[in-house]
Design a protein around this nucleic acid. Sequence first.
DNA 1: ATACGATCTGAGAATCATTCTCAATTAGGA
DNA 2: TCCTAATTGAGAATGATTCTCAGATCGTAT
Lengths: 134, 134
Amino acid sequence: MTTHPPVARPRTTWQRRAVLRAIETASCHLAADEIHRRLQRGRRRIGLATVYRALEAFVRAGVVEPVHIGDGRVRYGLAARHHDHLVCLTCGAWEPLEACPVPAASGGVPSGFAVTGHRLEVFGHCARCREADR
Amino acid sequence: MTTHPPVARPRTTWQRRAVLRAIETASCHLAADEIHRRLQRGRRRIGLATVYRALEAFVRAGVVEPVHIGDGRVRYGLAARHHDHLVCLTCGAWEPLEACPVPAASGGVPSGFAVTGHRLEVFGHCARCREADR
DNA sequence: ATACGATCTGAGAATCATTCTCAATTAGGA
DNA sequence: TCCTAATTGAGAATGATTCTCAGATCGTAT
């Protein structure tokens, strides 16, 4: 038999290309509505629901990675990039951590598990908030 | 001068004690509405908004730690406990990582930043999914 | 113990991100 | 080109979280 499994094959549309391009060219992670707003600047309109659907497809495909920074909305970035962050529990500031403190060979991971990446968030209070708090 | 800074000093109320106790006695992370539901079982009623406010206060105080697992709601656990996880990108399985691969002295953190904790998520594909995928 | 002011609470409305609905459009293989 | 399933847009629906405000309560000073 030649029939392939009933798996949905994603289509290539200008909308999805636009969403991916927006993420690729962004200097930081973008929330869905930010991507949507940026795309409104072009000639053709794109619906917010479409942006969400495209993001869902990319995340499922492993191309894009969702990140929660605690402000109530999800941000998206290329999965290939490295994402470790510093989060201030007082003001909510969220900034990338340059040096990655996670050893390449992650200890404690079961032998059968194939590691493809990781995300580290370091919590605490930033200098500014500690200063203001005293 | 004896006057203390105009910083809000949190009060101890039975509601906050109940919320903290619910988190402490839980076997896993709880979402706000789960905590609320558990507390409804007691004699006295407690409002959902109060649960959220208590959680906010505890998170700000560094006692409780919020965790996003991607289902659209935030879960809470004691900050003292360690929370590193293994996430399978294929089946979505999410399990605690016993050994913590993150060095105690997190490198790359600015000197002014007071670290109170961290969260690590290691992505990949579990043995079971890799087996089923071939 | 009592008084008083600041903080906290409850209930429901309001907000906001995300998902769903459905008719119309479109990608892409035959 | 044709056909069909996948995709889209607009707005409604959903669901988590936050806000509002009057009344209850905590904790310090008296």
